[in-house]
Simulated scan of single mutants.
Amino acid sequence: MSLHRRLLLSRGLTLGAGLALAPSARAQSGPIKLGTLTPLTGAGGPYGPVMVTTVKAVIDEVNAAGGVLGRQIMLVSEDDQTNPEAGVRAARKLIDVDKVTAIMGTWASAVTTAVAPLCWESKTFLSTVSGADSITALPHLGYLVRTQPNTTLQGRKFGEFALEQGAKKVFFLTPQTPFAQSQLASMKAAVEKAGGKVDSLIYDDKKPSLRTEVDTALRGTPDMIVLGGYTPDTTVLLKDLFRANFKGKLLGFGYSVNQKLIEALPGEVSEGIFTLSPSSDDGALAYKRVAEITKSASPDPYSCQIYDHVSLIVLAMAAAKAASGDAIKDSIRRVAQGGGEKVESAVAGLRLLAAGRKIDYVGASGPCDFTDIGDISDSKFRYEQVKGGKLALLKVA
């Protein structure tokens, strides 16, 4: 028997009357557990570890400043392997065993789609960098936000950029993903409005060669081919396009045509490829902090976004004066778009909230204003091109 319990009993108090010993009170005195569910392996493997490093740095800063609600934060990290089944197993552990209040950083849209129902059913808050339109159309009851622009917006940007490059005939080569159809529809609308044409083909991303699919695409003599896959299958696709002597222009997602892919291919295979990515706010103090954490002059957009996830979740709990998925759901917009003083870090926001002031968090990925269904309301895009084995910035718009 603990000394505390003996003292209570010696004063004639029963366990039923000993409110200090109630399980809920004991739970409130322990650490607040937050989880990351990122791709430490698989197609998203280049991004997941850095995302976790970023979250840990923010949590360390918050804990050093006294924590949240008088409690320290404990981070629990799991690998979704860029695979829905593995993601579900990891999410169940985070929710059922670790009992995290929020899960941050799901990357692949298929993983987020699989994991989201577990979160809203358990009232665990979920923040994601996945882009498929279908995600925020799920009945998530407000327990989800994303900082990644949806694929309707991204598809339109792909189409508009293809037109800027003089393309009239565009071919979209993509594996089957939760965002393939919405991206295609939006891209087609933009190109066809200007008198162009878009054709498409869905391929099996597990095949060791995609030459048959490449030959099918080239029969239409496209001016530009848009690459809709992840790094592993895009690597295969680019090799087969080079062998087929394709001389047109190539445009891919920035997360796919990354430095790892460029270094894995001969220079003549990757030279000249255009990439498109949601743009972080490289003028923000928060962006500079992510650059310090990741030891990168140009941190990837997902590290910037997850920096904002953990900051917003910490601030939402502080504003609500409670550490729960419900508290985050109800307060995240209050700290992100509440019309208060601009802040760019969790620690700065906590100080202002403790002083009774309203805040408006502006992060490394830009303004974090969310629609009613959890979409980010606006975003800039970063356009780059592979030149001499490196990605060179063309514009941010």
Rank of each mutant, 00 (worst) to 15 (best):
D215R: 14
K247R: 13
D204H: 09
F246D: 00
D205K: 14
L238K: 04
R243F: 02
L250H: 04
G248T: 02
R211S: 15
L238C: 10
K206V: 15
P232H: 09
T212Q: 14
S256D: 08
I225G: 02
T212M: 05
S256I: 02
R219G: 10
L251D: 09
L227I: 13
G228P: 12
G229H: 11
T234A: 04
K239L: 07
N258A: 06
M224H: 08
F253D: 10
L238E: 08
D240K: 10
T221K: 15
G252P: 11
N245Q: 08
L250K: 03
T231D: 09
G254H: 05
V214K: 14
L250F: 08
I225N: 05
L237S: 01
V214C: 11
L238S: 07
N258K: 06
A217R: 08
R243M: 00
D233T: 09
A244M: 10
N245M: 00
D215I: 01
L227Q: 05
L218I: 11
G248K: 03
D223M: 13
D240G: 09
N258I: 10
L237T: 01
I225E: 02
K239N: 12
L218P: 13
T234S: 05
T234N: 10
Y230F: 12
G228C: 12
T216V: 06
M224R: 05
F246H: 01
L241Y: 05
D215H: 08
P222K: 07
K206S: 15
V214G: 07
M224V: 05
T216D: 00
G252A: 14
D223V: 13
T231E: 15
G220M: 02
R243G: 01
D204E: 09
M224T: 06
V236W: 06
G228I: 12
P222H: 05
D205P: 13
S256P: 07
L241N: 06
V226R: 10
